[in-house]
Protein backbone atom coordinates (compact mmCIF):
# COMPACT_ATOMS: atom_id res chain seq x y z
CA UNK A 1 0.00 0.00 0.00
CA UNK A 2 2.63 2.54 1.02
CA UNK A 3 5.47 3.49 -1.28
CA UNK A 4 8.87 2.39 -0.07
CA UNK A 5 11.91 4.54 -0.51
CA UNK A 6 14.10 3.30 -3.34
CA UNK A 7 17.88 2.95 -3.03
CA UNK A 8 18.55 6.53 -4.02
CA UNK A 9 16.17 7.81 -1.36
CA UNK A 10 17.50 5.96 1.66
CA UNK A 11 17.90 9.21 3.57
CA UNK A 12 14.22 9.98 3.15
CA UNK A 13 12.46 10.97 6.36
CA UNK A 14 9.17 9.15 6.07
CA UNK A 15 6.51 8.76 8.70
CA UNK A 16 7.56 7.13 11.99
CA UNK A 17 7.70 3.35 12.30
CA UNK A 18 6.22 1.95 15.50
CA UNK A 19 7.39 -1.22 17.23
CA UNK A 20 4.58 -2.59 19.47
CA UNK A 21 7.03 -4.89 21.27
CA UNK A 22 8.92 -1.94 22.74
CA UNK A 23 6.06 0.52 23.27
CA UNK A 24 5.08 1.13 26.88
CA UNK A 25 2.06 3.26 26.02
CA UNK A 26 3.29 6.34 27.86
CA UNK A 27 1.78 8.72 25.29
CA UNK A 28 4.83 10.99 24.95
CA UNK A 29 4.53 10.81 21.15
CA UNK A 30 0.93 11.99 21.16
CA UNK A 31 1.81 14.82 23.54
CA UNK A 32 4.55 16.30 21.38
CA UNK A 33 2.94 15.74 17.96
CA UNK A 34 2.33 19.21 16.47
CA UNK A 35 -0.63 18.07 14.38
CA UNK A 36 -2.20 15.56 16.78
CA UNK A 37 -1.73 12.69 14.34
CA UNK A 38 -0.92 10.13 17.07
CA UNK A 39 -3.49 8.97 19.62
CA UNK A 40 -2.67 6.65 22.51
CA UNK A 41 -5.58 5.41 24.57
CA UNK A 42 -6.54 2.56 26.88
CA UNK A 43 -9.59 0.58 25.85
CA UNK A 44 -10.45 -2.36 28.08
CA UNK A 45 -7.34 -4.41 28.75
CA UNK A 46 -5.48 -3.22 25.69
CA UNK A 47 -3.64 -0.06 24.69
CA UNK A 48 -4.43 1.30 21.22
CA UNK A 49 -1.69 3.20 19.40
CA UNK A 50 -3.34 4.95 16.44
CA UNK A 51 -1.46 6.93 13.81
CA UNK A 52 -3.30 8.99 11.23
CA UNK A 53 -0.84 9.06 8.33
CA UNK A 54 -2.83 11.70 6.47
CA UNK A 55 -2.31 14.24 9.24
CA UNK A 56 1.33 13.34 9.89
CA UNK A 57 3.74 15.99 8.61
CA UNK A 58 6.81 13.72 8.80
CA UNK A 59 8.67 15.89 11.27
CA UNK A 60 9.55 12.82 13.37
CA UNK A 61 9.53 14.93 16.56
CA UNK A 62 7.91 11.92 18.26
CA UNK A 63 10.99 9.83 17.49
CA UNK A 64 13.11 12.31 19.47
CA UNK A 65 10.83 12.00 22.47
CA UNK A 66 10.18 8.23 22.61
CA UNK A 67 11.72 7.01 25.91
CA UNK A 68 12.13 3.35 24.86
CA UNK A 69 13.07 3.58 21.19
CA UNK A 70 9.80 2.08 20.01
CA UNK A 71 9.55 4.77 17.34
CA UNK A 72 12.09 5.12 14.54
CA UNK A 73 12.27 7.15 11.35
CA UNK A 74 10.62 5.14 8.62
CA UNK A 75 11.41 4.93 4.94
CA UNK A 76 7.81 4.81 3.77
CA UNK A 77 6.42 8.22 2.95
CA UNK A 78 3.70 8.11 0.32
CA UNK A 79 0.16 7.83 1.63
CA UNK A 80 -1.82 6.89 -1.44
CA UNK A 81 -4.63 4.55 -0.38
CA UNK A 82 -7.93 3.50 -1.87
CA UNK A 83 -9.94 3.99 1.31
CA UNK A 84 -9.65 6.37 4.22
CA UNK A 85 -9.40 3.52 6.76
CA UNK A 86 -6.08 2.46 5.31
CA UNK A 87 -4.65 5.82 6.32
CA UNK A 88 -4.86 4.82 9.97
CA UNK A 89 -2.24 2.56 11.52
CA UNK A 90 -3.60 0.75 14.58
CA UNK A 91 -1.42 -1.26 16.95
CA UNK A 92 -2.76 -2.88 20.11
CA UNK A 93 -0.59 -3.76 23.06
CA UNK A 94 -1.63 -5.76 26.13
CA UNK A 95 -1.98 -3.75 29.32
CA UNK A 96 -0.01 -4.70 32.41
CA UNK A 97 -2.08 -6.21 35.22
CA UNK A 98 -1.55 -5.13 38.79
CA UNK A 99 0.56 -7.84 40.50
CA UNK A 100 -1.40 -7.39 43.72
CA UNK A 101 -5.06 -7.18 42.78
CA UNK A 102 -5.04 -8.13 39.10
CA UNK A 103 -6.78 -4.99 37.83
CA UNK A 104 -5.64 -3.41 34.52
CA UNK A 105 -3.22 -0.50 34.69
CA UNK A 106 -2.51 2.36 32.29
CA UNK A 107 0.76 1.14 30.82
CA UNK A 108 1.66 -1.85 28.67
CA UNK A 109 3.32 -5.20 29.43
CA UNK A 110 6.53 -3.98 27.80
CA UNK A 111 7.26 -1.68 30.71
CA UNK A 112 8.76 -4.62 32.61
CA UNK A 113 11.63 -4.83 30.13
CA UNK A 114 12.65 -1.30 31.01
CA UNK A 115 12.36 -1.63 34.77
CA UNK A 116 15.73 -2.28 36.31
CA UNK A 117 15.76 -2.23 40.11
CA UNK A 118 13.74 -4.10 42.73
CA UNK A 119 12.30 -0.94 44.24
CA UNK A 120 10.91 0.07 40.86
CA UNK A 121 9.31 -3.37 40.51
CA UNK A 122 7.80 -3.07 43.93
CA UNK A 123 6.26 0.28 43.01
CA UNK A 124 4.49 -1.30 40.02
CA UNK A 125 0.99 -1.57 41.34
CA UNK A 126 -2.28 0.08 40.41
CA UNK A 127 -3.42 3.42 41.82
CA UNK A 128 -5.92 1.81 44.15
CA UNK A 129 -3.38 -0.64 45.61
CA UNK A 130 -0.95 2.23 46.15
CA UNK A 131 -3.57 4.24 48.04
CA UNK A 132 -4.58 1.22 50.09
CA UNK A 133 -0.99 0.48 51.11
CA UNK A 134 -0.49 4.13 51.97
CA UNK A 135 -3.62 4.10 54.11
CA UNK A 136 -2.33 1.00 55.92
CA UNK A 137 0.89 2.83 56.75
CA UNK A 138 -1.08 5.83 58.00
CA UNK A 139 -3.19 3.51 60.17
CA UNK A 140 -0.06 1.90 61.67
CA UNK A 141 1.44 5.29 62.48
CA UNK A 142 -1.79 6.40 64.09
CA UNK A 143 -1.88 3.31 66.35
CA UNK A 144 1.68 3.89 67.44
Amino acid sequence: MYRQASDGEKNMRGYPRHDPDKCIGCGACSNVCPTDSITVRVSGDRIEWIHNVARCIRCCFCVDHCPTGALSVGEEYSMIADSIDKLYILHTIDVEKCPKCGRTMTYSVNVEKHVASRTEKASMSCERCKIESLLRVVEKVRRV
Binding site: E9, N11, M12, C60, F61, D64
Partner: peptide
Protein backbone atom coordinates in the same frame (compact mmCIF):
# COMPACT_ATOMS: atom_id res chain seq x y z
CA UNK B 1 18.89 18.90 0.87
CA UNK B 2 17.70 15.29 0.72
CA UNK B 3 21.17 14.02 1.58
CA UNK B 4 21.54 16.45 4.49
CA UNK B 5 18.18 16.36 6.22
CA UNK B 6 16.26 13.49 4.64
CA UNK B 7 13.68 15.55 2.84
CA UNK B 8 13.65 17.67 -0.27
CA UNK B 9 11.75 20.60 1.12
CA UNK B 10 10.57 20.30 4.71
CA UNK B 11 13.81 20.10 6.65
CA UNK B 12 12.37 19.72 10.16
CA UNK B 13 15.73 20.81 11.54
CA UNK B 14 15.00 23.76 13.79
CA UNK B 15 14.10 23.63 17.44
CA UNK B 16 14.24 26.48 19.93
CA UNK B 17 17.85 26.83 21.06
CA UNK B 18 19.50 25.01 18.17
CA UNK B 19 18.97 22.19 15.73
CA UNK B 20 17.79 18.61 16.08
Amino acid sequence: CDILVGNRKMYGLNVIGGVR
